[in-house]
Design a protein around this nucleic acid. Structure first.
Lengths: 176, 176
DNA sequence: CTGTTTGTTCGGTTCGAGTCGAACAAGCGA
DNA sequence: TCGCTTGTTCGACTCGAACCGAACAAACAG
C-alpha cells in the first residue's frame, strides 16, 4: 500500500494516471544516474499540492525514514527538489519539487557529463605533454582523442547556456 | 601485469601516456552506462595498430576470456568496435575500434536517452487520455510534464541529425 | 580422425549500491 | 524537566552487475 489515505479524494483515473507517470519517473531516474526511489520521491513531490515533510513522504512512498532522508539530501544537492525551511521555524523540514525540469537537467549534465569531460580532457592533455618526439603513433591517436573531447566540451558548454526553447530554436533554424 | 610484451618496444613515456588515457576511458565508460572493462578494451583497440582477436585482448587487458567475449559483444552491438570478419576465413574474429566517436555517442544517445524519452512520453500521453474533466490538478501537472518531454524529444531528435561540427556551428551562430 | 585453437555459454563468486531498522541528536510542547 | 516528534547516522542485509573459470561448441591442421 503505497499511497496514503489523504489523497484518496481524487478519482480512480487520476490516481492511475499519477501512478503510471510516477513509475515513468522512477525509470527515468535510472537513466540520469539516480535511484528508483529518487524518481518516486520526486514524482510524489511533483504532484503534491504543498511541500511535504519526511514523515509524509514516508507515508506516501512506503520507503523507510532513513531512505527518504538520504534520497532527499541527494535530490536537494542535485537541485531537483528544494528545502522549504519550515515557516514555523521548528525542526520540521519540507520539500518541494522543482518543476522547471530543463534547468535541472542542465545542472545534472554539468555535474555528470561536463565534469567528466573536463577531467578526461585534462588527463589527455597531461598525457600528451609527457610524450617525446619519437612517439608518433601514440601522439597522433591521443591528439585525435583530445580534439574530439574539445568539440564535445564546447558543445555541452554552449548548450548549457541556452533554455530549452532557445536550444530547440537554434537547432531548428540551422540550415533550413 | 596488464600489457603484453609485444608492445614493449614503445617508449616509457608513450606507455605511460597510453595507460593514463585508457584509464580515463575506463572512467568515461561508466558515465555512458558501460562497464570499466568495456572502457579498457575499447582503449586497447583504439591504440592498436591492427585489429585484435580475443586471445590477444585477453593478453593485453588481463581480463578472462569470457569477459572479453561478453564485452566485445556489447561493444559491437553499441557500435564502438567492429568485427573484422577475419580474412583467413577461419573462426578467428578480430575487432577494431571505431574512431569517429561522435557518431557512436549519437547512437548511444539514441539507444539510451531517446528511447527512454519516447517510452516516457508515450506513458504520459496514455495517462493523460485516461483522465476525466474533474481531474484538474493532475491534468495540469501531467500536461506540463508532457510538454517538457516533447521539447526534450525534439531537441534530441534535431541534434542527432547533425555532426559534431554542425552542432557546434549551430549553437555558436545562434543569436550572435 | 584426433588434437589444438578460438569463441560462447553457464554456474558461482565478489563487490558495491540501495534499502532497512535501530540508535542517536535536536528541537517542541506539556 | 520529561516525553514526543522529526531528522540524521550507522551497521547489516539484499540484490544485481561484473567478472572469473570451467565446460562446451566449432573450426582448422596434422
Amino acid at each position: 500500500m503505497r499511497r496514503s489515505d489523504e489523497v484518496a479524494r481524487m478519482s480512480e483515473n487520476a490516481e492511475a494516471a499519477r501512478e503510471r507517470v510516477i513509475e515513468s519517473l522512477e525509470q527515468s531516474a535510472e537513466v540520469y544516474g539516480l535511484s528508483r526511489s529518487a524518481g518516486r520521491i520526486y514524482g510524489v513531490l511533483y504532484f503534491a499540492d504543498a511541500p511535504l515533510s519526511i514523515p509524509e513522504l514516508v507515508d506516501r512512498t512506503g520507503y523507510a525514514k532513513s531512505t527518504v532522508s538520504n534520497v532527499t539530501r541527494t535530490l536537494t544537492r542535485v537541485g531537483l527538489i528544494h528545502r522549504r525551511s519550515s515557516d514555523g521555524g521548528g525542526r520540521r523540514v519540507r520539500f518541494a519539487a522543482e518543476r522547471e525540469i530543463w534547468y535541472i537537467l542542465q545542472d545534472v549534465f554539468q555535474q555528470y557529463v561536463q565534469r567528466e569531460l573536463q577531467t578526461t580532457h585534462r588527463t589527455i592533455r597531461r598525457a600528451e605533454r609527457g610524450l617525446d618526439d619519437g612517439d608518433g603513433v601514440e601522439a597522433e591517436r591521443i591528439r585525435e582523442l583530445r580534439e574530439t573531447y574539445e568539440d564535445l566540451q564546447e558543445i555541452v558548454e554552449l548548450a548549457s547556456e541556452l533554455s530549452a526553447a532557445e536550444l530547440r530554436d537554434a537547432l531548428d533554424s540551422y540550415e533550413g
